[in-house]
Design a protein around this nucleic acid. Structure first.
Lengths: 286, 286
DNA sequence: CGGTACCGATACCCACAGGGCATCGGTGGG
DNA sequence: CCCACCGATGCCCTGTGGGTATCGGTACCG
């Protein structure tokens, strides 16, 4: 607005800075960026002039972030993510592609998901919905980086920061066990009963951390986990609704002291498109 | 990642596109951007090639957004805001400047604010906090564009989309009236009593809309509004805690059917700096 | 129905910003 | 003390972003 708007920060400069700030080494950063080191040094220097302060402390032996640099690393990453999300969402808006991508943890909320898709398809203004199955913990990422528009996720397990959310329902949790297991006959258990079961180690979630990790086999999503339970290699603690999708050979036992799980529908704060709003409204009516 | 990463979108291109999409006119957009029309046309064409689809429908008489263009307008604005926020926050991180800026509606939550600042100053790791007084409805904007790091705001009045939030407390609302007013002696009132009071029109909030607008004098913030009430020009409906900051000549009467107001502390989702976290923690202990 | 005013696209040209290569200067380790 | 490492500097070049002139299509008006 007006004369003298010094000149704005370009995403290229942000990418350069983030690379250097992550590597803390101009040479390696330049290599990662596919360019030579001198222009990178100059670009950073120019960015520092433009922002009116040092971002990096260089002794010719070591590179470190200044406080301002630490701020720009955090904020710059977020800004770059926003730009990339904009790009992806625009690409996805090409004619002929599904208007809405719904991200769901593979193997979770199967019943709810089916209901939701049916209800949505029955709507008069129904737009095609693409379902994207992701691993546990990737939900937020996929939503934030523009690969999906809406997601079903679960409190308190999934990270909801920066997302807009509506609650769909809360349920208790049950242990999923091989039918023949010693605990399978119990009317209920507590978490302590499940810790260190002989021959039945807790599963370990791959991908971004966040939930308590066991020592057993590594799994990416609920579908994999259920399969491993059926094979007698581990157990699982899932929301009650998992019962509807269990085959032969698996039993469930209520876990009295497990936190209740709330299923929520979430979307990135700007993506208030009509299509997303419609899907959310449908979900809330279930 | 790897070879063939076609080339990324620059913020300059986003600014160009947003200008054209808002003006729906290449000439005016170019003028607004301080450049000539031809390079602008080319830049948009290049952006369309890069994103693999038309963003604008041009007949030589009228320019309109395609669906993809509408998406990019929404998402691009958000991305640009993120970049500008990154820039502002980095500038603010220069040594010697306050580490945390707390945005508060002028005239609101005075007591809570004082308590919070006192409590925070008493902390061992206390960093200087700058208080930014803003008009009603500007809270979110100020947080999102990087001028502030934390804000006190009020549900359900303020828009919390895209912000991370912790609740601080809920209170009922009272009507603030000139002491001599007819209703001032009542033990309680309902909202209907306040509608269309002879000679006492409801105030009108300037700035971004959102709350019910009256026909009376226009005000920017709570402080202005209280002043006008004292002058007998309007009335106000405020959270109970306003009582502590009323001078002579003003009375309060509980409003039975007014929605309770929840005061929350909010911050942008990435700005998880230690300083912000500390302030939030202090607020939660009050 | 022809003229004209308007608007985005095209053609052409220039300047400079961004990138490469060679080298310097400071610093810590052997 | 020398060498290896690393970021900064100097210098050159190319690509692209921007400017001016003009085209081509369309709607409006006399």
């Amino acid at each position: 607005m007006g004369i003298g708007t010094v000149e704005d920060v370009e995403t290229r400069e942000l990418r350069y800075f983030v690379a250097v700030a992550e590597e803390l080494h101009f040479g390696r950063a330049a290599q990662r960026l596919g360019m030579a080191q001198p222009p990178l040094s100059r670009a950073i220097a120019q960015l520092e002039r433009r922002l009116g302060g040092a971002l990096l402390e260089r002794t010719s032996r070591v590179v470190a972030l200044t406080p301002a640099g630490a701020v720009l690393l955090r904020e710059g990453r977020a800004a770059l993510a926003a730009v990339e999300a904009a790009e992806r969402r625009t690409r996805r808006a090409a004619p002929g592609r599904a208007e809405v991508v719904l991200a769901v943890k593979a193997g979770a909320s199967a019943e709810l998901l089916a209901e939701l898709l049916d209800a949505h398809a029955a709507e008069p203004d129904a737009v095609p919905v693409e379902v994207l199955l992701v691993g546990v913990g990737e939900q937020g990422a996929v939503l934030r980086d523009g690969r999906a528009d809406v997601a079903l996720l679960h409190r308190p397990y999934d990270d909801l920061t920066g997302l807009d959310v509506e609650e769909l329902g809360t349920e208790g949790q049950v242990a999923v066990l091989p039918a023949g297991h010693a605990l399978a006959g119990r009317t209920d258990v507590v978490l302590a009963d499940l810790a260190d079961l002989p021959g039945l180690p807790a599963p370990r979630w791959s991908g971004p951390a966040g939930r308590p990790d066991g020592s057993g086999p590594e799994v990416r999503d609920h579908a994999q986990l259920l399969q491993l339970v059926a094979l007698g290699r581990t157990f699982a603690v899932f929301p009650e609704s998992v019962r509807s999708q269990l085959g032969e050979g698996l039993t469930t036992v209520p876990v009295l002291d497990a936190e209740p799980v709330t299923t929520v529908v979430a979307w990135p704060p700007h993506s208030r498109s009509l299509a997303v709003a419609g899907l959310v409204r449908t979900a809330l009516r279930l």
